[in-house]
Simulated assay, not measured.
Amino acid sequence: MALLVPASTLPVSIFAGRSNPALAQRIAEEGGWTLGEVTLKDFSDGEIYVRYEESIRGTDLFIIQSTPPPAEHWMELFLMIDAARRASAARITAVLPYFGYARQDRKDQPRVSIAARMIAKMLQDAGVDRVLTMDLHAAQIQGFFDIPVDHLYGSAVFETWLDENTLMLAGSNGQTVEDFRQNLVVVAPDVGASKIARAYAKRFKAGLALIDKRRPEANVAEVMNIIGDVKGKNCLVIDDLCDTAGTLTSGAKALSDAGALSVQAFCSHPLLSGPAVDRIEASPLSRVIVTDSVPLARTSDKIEVISVAPLFAESIHRIGSDESISTLFVE
């Protein structure tokens, strides 16, 4: 009887979809890999065609594909997984820097879809063996899967940015580094973000505040109250994604009106749809730090991008060699 080859001895193959080729290339370069050759094209009616241009039989295959709108990014990923399974890849890991449809994670109204659960089932039905993602909108989405899900946090790269730029931030407010750190307050833009904001506050050794927000309808946010002391403080708003920036900018205005000395924001996934960039530019926000989990549709002097490629490259390396990546899960 032939012996099964341990996963740690399988050759690693890295392929990328078309949603975020720049990040995929950076991940490959960080890990010392070369992106595999794959043909991805659309027929004239929009139907997606996938073909791997090299043998992937028996490989430990990683497919890098963020899934912001349009939904074709999901469809392309499903087809890449299916083609890999039919080409006899030994293990298939979907690397999702941004997990789309994660906001629809529960039935909070009558007659609505739990889209995140449906996506999880479709990934498994397509044949994926493992999912690697970052800063899910709702951590409980991991429970929708019957396969391993490695959930990374962007806090490590944000902490590095803060450490490297504290002197600049303090100087812009006429403060010493010590004063800036002592007056740093992490702000949750809504109740849903309070857990991750608390983790950031603990990591940064900062204070904590919460914006009590009521949302009359989708993509419309109304700030009601600020819980915590923000007067004379350096406020750092933490959120997993920024879509239309309504929540972020209305929160920043409320903080400024309450006497905040400065307002910055960390947002993992910069969807920035519709009027988002215009709102950010017109807001009291001095800067918004985002990751490259999704490509920016439009740039701004107030928006700074930092890369999560090293984080994902290290995770892929550890998964491929069957090493623990639990240290990368720390919020």
Rank of each mutant, 00 (worst) to 15 (best):
L236Y: 01
V191M: 15
L271A: 09
I147D: 01
I303H: 02
F180W: 14
Q140S: 11
C267G: 13
V330N: 11
D129R: 06
C242I: 12
W74Y: 14
F158K: 09
L23C: 09
A83E: 12
P270I: 00
R85I: 06
V223M: 15
E314S: 03
D212N: 14
C267T: 15
K253Y: 11
L311G: 04
V131Y: 02
N20P: 08
P70I: 02
A28P: 00
H317I: 02
K302R: 12
Y200D: 08
G232P: 11
S13P: 02
S326R: 11
S293W: 02
E217R: 13
N234L: 11
D212S: 10
L79G: 00
A209Y: 06
F15H: 09
M168K: 14
S300V: 12
H317N: 10
D45S: 13
L184I: 03
A313K: 08
M1N: 08
P11E: 05
K202N: 15
T67P: 03
M168P: 00
S44C: 10
A197K: 13
L255R: 15
I196M: 14
T247N: 13
R103Q: 14
F43Y: 11
G171C: 08
E53S: 12
A16W: 07
H73E: 04
R91I: 04
K195L: 13
F266Q: 10
F62P: 05
T34S: 07
F266H: 01
F144S: 12
H317C: 01
V330A: 14
A116D: 04
L261K: 14
P11K: 06
T34Y: 01
F15C: 08
R318N: 03
Q25F: 06
M75N: 01
G192H: 07
F15N: 11
A87H: 01
V149R: 10
Y49E: 08
S273D: 09
